[in-house]
Design a binder for these strands. Structure first.
Length: 115
DNA sequence: ATTCTGACGTGGG
DNA sequence: CCCCACGCCAGAA
């Protein structure tokens, strides 16, 4: 009880860890998958706390337009883009090219969420 | 307690 | 396609 917040963070990380190599998803999709479709902003907040955790591929999470909105929170100026391009994803002007082709939706590709 | 902000999303023009 | 206003919710000042 009343630990929903902590689970929320863990839930977000567990989903992000399952994003396949070379694919990306959005904050909103993650929020929707874990049962809080209106807390997409909190997903971003959770990612902010994932800085310490190296198991979480935060670079594979972008906004619904395919923009690298969190890029500024990575080290250096272009780390996020570098990581994505190292996985074969093309990026131009902070935006993922051929977005629909590399987009991976947990709601569709994972079994129903259960805690 | 109140106000503002933010790694967002949707709807309307 | 772009831009704007609004809704959301947790944390900081």
């Amino acid at each position: 009880m009343s630990q929903g917040k902590r689970n929320f963070f863990e839930d977000v990380y567990s989903v992000v860890k399952k994003i396949p190599f070379g694919k990306v998803t959005s904050y909103g999709s993650i929020a929707k998958y874990i049962g809080s479709p209106q807390s997409s902003r909190m997903v971003g907040w959770a990612m902010n706390s994932s800085h310490n955790i190296h198991d979480v591929p935060a670079h594979r999470v972008v906004n619904r337009k395919g923009l690298l909105t969190g890029k500024h929170h990575f080290e250096g100026t272009n780390l996020m883009q570098q990581l994505l391009e190292s996985e074969g994803i093309k990026v131009h002007e902070n935006k993922i090219l051929n977005f629909s082709n590399v987009y991976w939706d947990p709601v569709i590709n994972l079994p129903p969420f259960k805690k």
